[in-house]
Write a protein that binds this DNA or RNA. Structure first.
Lengths: 134, 134, 134, 134
DNA sequence: GTGGTCTAGACCACC
DNA sequence: GTGGTCTAGACCACG
């Protein structure tokens, strides 16, 4: 998985990292139980401080995307995939995010079909979630 | 238009304000040329510092959502609605945003139809963009 | 509120800090909405790095004990006090903690009355939770 | 005795092990003088490194919960059960632990009776300490 | 080897 | 003024 970071942007590096890893998981590039690069490794690869990577991992852990197995480092942990809106807080966040993006798109001149096509493409990107690497 | 601000929370107040106004425009609550509340009016209503509101307006202006009319203050300025991806930088940002949201949704267990339904609902919210009130 | 830190102990400083503040809230030394000392202030008082204090505050925030109002810094935020075991994860943690402490006490020779007296004293310490300082 | 270990999570494995064994002793599942499983036996059962189990046993020994019998390995050694607060360091630790748990419970909305009921249940768990199996 | 903690000091965004 | 971010580098506990 290739991660590109924009050091000069306004989004904190650790958050960009968190976002990219979430996208990677969503794209199916990590199976359930698969290990992420070590903190030091990733920090060296990206040329950032290891505390920055560590913070991204802690963030992912607190959100339930990964666990840090004391033996193996950070591993992806996909939740049980039950009904969609089990987490109302997430649903609200999702709705709000989609409303903002769609408003911007609408104002820029997007038609509904174009917007939905992009949504569809985003959701279908990657090879789907894969289970069982643990 | 009612705006709710969360003073705790990660998103800066001025950005929340900017976001809510963009959503409002997207929902069609402002016609092209319609005036926004004055900075100090809005600041008083929300109980925030007027510099914060000012910054939000500055941000909207630099993004082309509003213009500053000497007499009437800040007015909404909808762009000509040309082809969708005229602005490649915006397209990239939109794609990235959708990819992140869809990844989170996928991991949470959303199926494609559910996600697309939410996208569709978000886009259709409000009464559509209205032109020419100036 | 006086906080004493054991720099040489095995509990991380930020966690000791978090614990002491939770105890302080439990003792009723902070009303709902009351501001905590600033990060820098507390760091200076305790002679520790401000990132350490910051980490303690972030921990408290992620657990819902405080919020960080962008204007006023960190403020105590007491949750609605509804039914006791609303949070099953917490209940489990509490049970486990009590089982461990009671086992140690039993082995040390405590009788039930002695143990319960200490539990009672611990719960009643301070002047109770106080609301409304917002 | 069944021991469950959480390899992710903040508490080191050897400490979880130590805690579970202390709980087991408190519940009366080990008579005075009864032998614990061998280090490598327990390590194999739990799927952890035997050094980890060894460290847990070392910890228990230094705290006086077990002794190392040359023939039989680690055996439980209950102290004479004298007056409660013979060990002031332990009393302080116990008080501090109870204060923390009770503060968390109070903030979560527990009433005193509920909390005391849980304390009582924790203390009474198991079949009491049994002496003299050695 | 791993992640976690801590420091000292810097810079920045926000309000 | 506030908290948040980041760095470089150190040390430690865990397994």
């Amino acid at each position: 998985m290739i991660i590109r970071i924009d050091v000069s942007g306004d989004i904190p590096i650790y958050m960009q990292l968190r976002n990219e890893i979430v996208k990677g998981i969503g794209r199916g590039e990590f199976a359930d139980g698969e290990a992420l690069p070590t903190v030091r490794q990733l920090a060296a690869d990206l040329g950032v401080n290891s505390m920055t990577v560590s913070k991204a991992y802690q963030c992912l852990r607190s959100e339930g995307y990964i666990e840090t197995d004391r033996r193996r480092g950070a591993v992806v942990r996909l939740p049980e995939r039950d009904s969609a809106c089990a987490d109302p807080a997430f649903c609200e966040r999702l709705e709000s995010g989609l409303e903002l993006l769609s408003a911007e798109a609408k104002i820029k001149g997007f038609r509904k079909e174009e917007f939905i096509r992009m949504c569809s493409a985003a959701f279908e990107g990657g090879r789907g979630l894969t289970a069982d690497a643990g």
